[in-house]
Nucleic acid binder design. Structure first.
Length: 584
RNA sequence: GCGCCCAUAGCUCAGCUGGAUAGAGCGCCGGACUUCGAAUCCGUAGGUCGCAGGUUCGAAUCCUGCUGGGCGUACCA
């Protein structure tokens, strides 16, 4: 719709100026004050221009002015203008737009929505950031869903995207699992126990906590082990390698199951010493300063913040030092235009500081660093607490969803219909999970209601899948009847009803939605657009015979429209990481 | 204490850079399967958009203050 917006802005502006000239009225800038919107109801037109802003200059009431402008424009090849109260409403010429839109969808093939708005941009996006001492939990799932989806959306906008993961594989918490394993493990392995590697290591992390309650020396022992690790003690390093491998294999399976992937793995164990040289250089150049206590600091008073320690008095680095070094080294690896960090909002301050420092160091790319900050995932009972064992395990959740989806398939007697019931159930569970996590704006905290997330009705991922599957079903039926089901475009005059017009608009708007989702780093926009499309379509095909239409030409035209909607759904599913199913 | 974020139907969430009567889903109640798959569709009820000011022709949207909640505020990561 916005495509035609500008033409109307020009037209109305021109008309306003003409009118003003005749009345000897001085007009300021007109175009910037003309903003097209969508009328509240479809039968009120396609674009609405409020004329309030011009009332004063014309010294006439907005409705009067609207009537005058609409009267002068009247009917044009693009459509007609009609005054409705203080608004000039535009009724677009539908036939041509319908034909053009379907033709565009056809030409894009399976990539409807893709565009070139970020073409030529190199964007690196970091997400997930797992620890190697325990399995992924619900919080990671939101992070992964956001990261993966954002990456796909950016790619669809033409950007060159590199997905990156930073594995937190060092530190005391890692040593705690190792220590407990050494004490209680008796050589147990994922193979010998049949327990998934990340879970096994996580179990020992829990065991450590229990043991530490009884033995006050436990914490000190963990610290001691960390020192040995840093001194590259062979035994400790060997155990570390073994257990990290177990965890990463386990976590890798979770990624595989949830369709999450990375182009490059970074490991903290290899990066944690980075950044020190940069800080020392910055100190020489006067970007940083040496505090009285001997620590090296940055002064952030110019952005209203305090000071931040970058090197301790003993010269060793702190966490943010590593992040500074890592960012610089990554830019060396792959000179990005933008680096996006998908990290929870509890680290807002950290990134504010990090970005400020990189700017102070004079890196031009620091301007475009972006923290995709997202809110916490809470449970209906409150926060997830590891101490209280209320943390929702990622694998368990996905398995539960699959199980329920399988029951659903069985209860509907569709085991024979779908080729592989378990695979279908898995696909449905992913749709439920990812849609549930992505429908919420990233910034907001959200409540994860397990019961609701398991629902396959209403505003859910499976509902979207179902609509796509229904269209596929029609497509199969059409093929059986010997119809040509390739998307070939259509004569718009055959698709004239309001629902067809609405679907056309939804199709036409989709690329702009994808663009905005990329610009705002907000996959929920795509999710909402898909839901809207599916919902309007489901009403459409419920109320209007498509294949069964008595007029074969109309039947084929409607099928074409349905197939175009299917293209949008398929393309959108890819963007929010929900699997497409031809049958379910 | 200071800083950042959030507040919309009983619940979970939309509402784009301010525009006409604030929308979905769930739940409740009531309808629709001899008809393209009922994981569907349709309808009813449900709102002082946290409160109070301000800007504007016009505010859920922008500004200020307040209240309530969340998260930060390490020579932790």
């Amino acid at each position: 719709m916005a495509d035609w917006n500008q033409e109307w802005i020009d037209k109305i502006a021109q008309t306003l100026r003409e009118t003003a000239r005749e009345k000897n009225i001085e007009l300021g800038d007109v175009e910037s004050r003309l903003k097209g919107g969508k009328p509240p109801k479809a039968d009120m037109g396609d674009i609405a221009f409020p004329l309030f802003p011009f009332a004063k200059e014309f010294r006439s009431a907005p409705p009067q002015l609207a009537a005058e402008v609409a009267g002068r424009i009247g009917t044009t090849p693009l459509g007609r203008a009609q005054a409705m109260g203080p608004y000039v409403n535009i009724f677009l010429e539908r036939d041509q737009i319908v034909s053009d839109t379907l033709k565009s969808v056809l030409e894009k093939g399976g990539n409807w929505g893709h565009n070139e708005s970020l073409s030529g941009r190199k964007i690196m996006i970091e997400f997930s950031s797992p620890n190697t001492n325990k399995p992924l939990h619900l919080g990671h799932l939101r992070n992964d869903a956001l990261g993966e989806s954002s990456a796909r959306i950016l790619k669809a906008n033409g950007a060159d995207v590199q997905k990156v993961i930073l594995v937190n594989d060092r530190g005391v918490h890692i040593c705690k699992s190792m220590l407990a394993y050494r004490k209680f493990g008796r050589g147990e392995t994922p193979e010998s126990s049949g327990i998934k590697g990340d879970r096994l290591v996580g179990d020992y992390y829990v065991k450590f906590a229990q043991w530490a309650k009884e033995d006050p020396s436990a914490e000190a022992q963990a610290q001691e082990m960390l020192l040995k690790w840093e001194a590259e003690d062979k035994d400790v390093r060997d155990l570390w390698k073994t257990m990290n491998k177990w965890t990463l294999e386990g976590i890798g399976k979770t990624y595989e199951k949830t369709n999450i992937s990375f182009d490059k793995y970074y490991y903290e164990s290899r990066l944690y010493k980075m950044g020190r040289d940069i800080i020392l250089k910055g100190l020489e150049e006067g970007v940083f300063y040496k505090a009285e206590d001997g620590s090296t600091r940055v002064d952030m008073s110019e952005i209203g913040l305090d000071t931040k320690v970058l090197l301790r008095s003993d010269g060793t680095s702190v966490y943010i030092t590593q992040d500074i070094g890592t960012a610089i080294s990554r830019h060396g690896d792959w000179p990005f235009d933008q680096l996006i960090y998908v990290v929870g909002s509890e680290q807002d301050y950290h990134f504010q500081v990090l970005f400020y420092i990189l700017k102070k160091l004079g890196f031009d790319w620091a301007e475009s660093l972006y923290h995709l900050s997202y809110g916490m995932v809470n449970l209906p009972e409150g926060k997830m607490k590891s101490r209280e064992g209320t943390v929702v395990d990622a694998d368990d959740l996905v398995a539960n969803l699959s199980e329920l989806a399988l029951e659903e398939i069985k209860s509907k007697g569709r085991e024979e219909e779908v080729d592989d019931a378990q695979a279908t159930a898995d696909a449905v569970s992913l749709a439920a999970l990812h849609y549930y996590l992505l429908q919420v704006s990233p910034k907001k905290d959200m409540i994860f209601n397990p019961k609701e997330s398991l629902s396959f009705n209403g505003n859910t991922g499976p509902y979207l899948q179902y609509m796509a599957a229904r269209i596929c079903s029609m497509e199969r039926k059409a093929k059986d009847m010997g119809w040509d089901t390739t998307l070939t475009g259509v004569d718009g005059t055959l698709l004239g009803n309001d629902e067809e017009w609405e679907l056309t608009n939804i199709l036409a708007d989709f690329p702009r939605t994808v663009e905005q989702a990329g610009r705002d780093h907000n996959p929920s926009l795509v999710a909402a657009a898909l839901y809207n499309g599916a919902k309007v379509f489901s009403r459409y095909y419920h109320d209007n015979p498509i294949l069964n239409n008595e007029n074969p030409a109309v039947a084929k035209a409607r099928l074409q429209l349905s197939l175009a909607v299917l293209q949008m759904l398929k393309s959108g599913f890819e963007l929010i990481n929900i699997p497409f199913l031809a049958k379910m």
